[in-house]
Amino acid sequence: MSNFVLETINLSHIYSKGTTSQVDAIRDICLKIEKGELVGVIGHTGSGKSTLIQHFNGLLKGTSGTVLLDGSDIWADKSKLRNVRFRVGICFQYPEYQLFEETVYKDVAFGPKNMKLSDSEVDLRVREAISFVGLDESYLEKSPFDLSGGEKRRVAIAGVMAMKPDVLILDEPCAGLDPKGRETVLNLIKDYRETTESTVIIVSHSMEDISKLATKVLVMNNSRLAYYGTVDEVFSHAEELKEMGLNIPQITGLFLRLKEKGFDVRTDIYTLEKAKDEILKLLKGGCL
């Protein structure tokens, strides 16, 4: 078995093929995602991020190309497609709108129950998932519709986590949350990954969030894969990223401008620590 949990080979998807409204949503994506990574997916609206992730669990079938999960084609056996969905869990944007059960418990149990697990296993997973998202067990008997927005979001995320997927994909998990809510959600994702050692993919608009969390960054631009690499590698292309209309982290922006002014600094800096070191180096070098 390879080290890559997810692979795509020349994956393309064309919407409404053959009509006048034909759109190339993604083109020729070749990608290898290693086990245990936390991949941040960035790209502006319409760049194909959401289309791409819907291929990872077989919600969409590529017009051409293949998707491999642990080295085997997910479309090889259609009857196994549901198993693929249990192994690659997607939590969509605004997941709170998918809640439907009377109690939080039942809603979180929906996924595990579809997996046909035993009652005791389902119970275990629900309790585990709800603690992953930082809610206590008193929530289990509440109606999901009585919760606050942030709590609903966390319950919905727990609903996907309860399936214990090998790959957890979150599409804009922080959209529409206040700063405190964002931090809670990001931290719980981090904790989840550290505890379960699973692969996590996060789609986000926020470079700051991605640079803080991710081990790898995937940049989509105009339906194509622009970059895929470590955070350092990708942010070293700061200027190209800016050209794509993407926000770069504020710290990176600062160093870019320093360089423009003629200072000899690196531009792949995105954390406060590294920024401190670089500036100290600059000061010691006696340029100022």
């Binding site: 249990f86 998918q98 579809n114």
Partner: peptide, 13 residues
């Protein structure tokens, strides 16, 4: 379509 996709992702059949 959105809700269907979300529930399919949770194994709804």
């Amino acid at each position: 379509e959105k809700i269907t996709n979300a529930q399919k992702s949770r194994g709804a059949d």
